[in-house]
Design a protein around this nucleic acid. Structure first.
Length: 456
RNA sequence: UCCCCGGUAGCUCAAUCGGCAGAGCGGGUGGCUGUUAACCACUAGGUUCGCGGUUCAAGUCCGUGCCGGGGAGCCA
């Protein structure tokens, strides 16, 4: 007997006899002669109402099974005489696949706090909110692939384990097969014969592939060992990193804007029901924000002008503003949420505050870097045109005290057939925060990794 | 890592000036002619985060540790 998804049953145009539906009981209502079950199988936000008549076989099979139990129901999809749903499944046969003790099952038919649900991450995907989130997460992933494929990008896989210890993006996790309880660590004796780390970015390898295939992107997990305790940082997160040969910074920003817009449009098109939940219960202005992201052109301004705007704003800031100083979170938020009220790309940052691989501009003091800031989330994208000139790149290595010799393969792409190229990294969880209005990154990943959190 | 706030029943929270630890929801039991977070009645349920201190008396005040949240830095 094929199982019918709740999603399909709810969308049925006609009554149907002999459907088999399997799922988890969200709630149970007992009356004098009948019991109602709300059955959810994860296929969509909605539940299918199941009718069990007392004194019947299904009723005795159901017993006292209630919220949380897994059940299999065979029955007829009929018009529901009650209000609130078009269809209900009149049970002819029923089996409790897995009961759930009512006294100890943690999920109740009431709203739970995010903090509580984080403590039961193994069960929270059974709630409306996290089910909706995970379905949206899935669709957005597929939309990303659609977007790049339509534009001639190839999906490439870059290493998770890296030997580069200074990719310019924060602290790294060490990877070793050595016995840490043993004597002094000897890198020579370790698996790779040298120190190894979890990658903080696939960018350097993606550049090599872009200089071969033209347009590529990665979409995979990334690791940062920073002791960051904020709602916007995780130790393990997913990043989308496109890299384009024969492209400059402006084209890079163009791509970033097209991508974010396409994803906003796509998610509104494919996930209206799940988005509605977030618009109603999580972020009241969500749909207007998504429409704005999708419809209005992003603001773009050079870092130097951003500094002038901030200096002339008259606003009080905790941290100083000035050319050469990095923009603080308060400055980025002010620009994005108060001045422009829409996504904003800031570009051409002072070279001193950016990594070695960003292309030096002709003014000799800024690099072709760009950050895309979005309301409510802050930095969504960071990217740049890459330095393709060998001599300039070598001097940038020297300026930042890095050993160019260890990046001989990276420099080789500048020795042999070098060409302008550009790319960026988009934080996938931050995108989900933008799309759903969820304000903590720990709630847009099923099993988040943050400092001192590795339970599930 | 720094700053601020918090930790009371399974969950969400209340408890006046330091004076008998409470409610709603959830659970259990019973009722109810089709419910919609059903409804009605009854009922059980507590190391007030841990340790130490002040006091006749501490959920409440002091010290300290742990955990959580928010802000900052780092960044995606």
């Amino acid at each position: 007997m094929d199982r019918t998804l709740v999603r399909l049953a709810l969308r049925s145009k006609v009554p149907a006899r002999g459907l088999a539906v399997k799922g988890w009981v969200r709630t149970r209502r007992d009356l004098k002669g009948v019991t109602f079950l709300e059955l959810n199988d994860g296929s969509c936000l909605g539940n299918l109402q199941v009718l069990v008549e007392h004194g019947s076989g299904p009723a005795s099979a159901l017993g006292d099974a209630g919220t949380g139990a897994a059940v299999s129901v065979f029955g007829d999809l009929v018009d529901s005489p009650g209000k609130g749903q078009k269809w209900e499944l009149r049970a002819r046969d029923l089996e409790v696949l897995g009961p759930a003790d009512q006294g100890s099952y943690p999920l109740q038919k009431k709203r739970h706090s995010d903090e509580f649900l984080r403590g039961i991450a193994h069960l929270r995907p059974r709630t409306n909110k996290y089910g909706a989130l995970l379905r949206i997460r899935s669709e957005l992933s597929l939309l990303i692939h659609d977007f790049f494929r339509e534009r001639g990008f190839f999906y490439v896989h870059t290493p998770i384990i890296t030997g580069s210890d200074c990719e310019g993006a924060g602290e790294l996790f060490r990877v070793t097969s050595l016995d840490l309880a043993g004597p002094i660590l000897d890198h020579e004796a370790d698996f790779f014969g040298r120190p190894a780390y979890l990658t903080v970015s696939g960018q350097l390898e993606a550049e090599l592939l872009a200089m071969s295939l033209g347009r590529v992107y990665t979409f995979g997990p990334t690791f940062r060992a920073e002791n960051s305790n904020t709602p916007r940082h995780a130790a393990e997160f997913w990043m989308v990193e496109p890299e384009m040969a024969f492209a400059d910074l402006e084209e890079d920003i163009d791509l970033a804007e097209e991508l974010v817009k396409a994803l906003a449009v796509g998610v509104m098109d494919r996930c209206p029901e799940d988005l509605e939940l977030f618009a109603r219960f999580v972020e009241p202005g969500l749909m207007a924000r998504l429409e704005a992201v999708a419809g209005e052109p992003f603001a773009r301004l050079p870092y130097a002008e951003a500094v002038l705007v901030l200096e002339r704003s008259g606003a009080e800031f905790e941290y100083p503003v000035g050319f050469g100083l990095d923009l603080q979170t308060e400055h980025e938020r002010y620009l994005c949420e108060t001045v422009f009220k829409r996504p904003l790309a800031v570009f051409d940052y002072p070279k001193e505050i950016k990594p070695f691989y960003m292309r030096l501009n002709s003014d000799q003091r800024t690099v072709a870097a760009m950050d895309v800031l979005v309301p409510g989330v802050g930095e969504l994208i960071g990217g740049s045109q890459r330095e393709e000139r060998l001599e300039v790149l070598e001097s940038r290595f020297a300026d930042q005290g890095l050993d160019a010799g260890r990046y001989w393969w990276y420099l080789d792409t500048r020795r042999f057939g070098s060409a302008p190229h550009a790319g960026f990294g988009l934080g996938f969880e931050r995108l989900l925060m933008l799309v759903t209005g969820i304000s903590n990154i720990r709630d847009v990943i099923a099993f988040p990794r943050t400092p001192r959190n590795l339970e599930f």
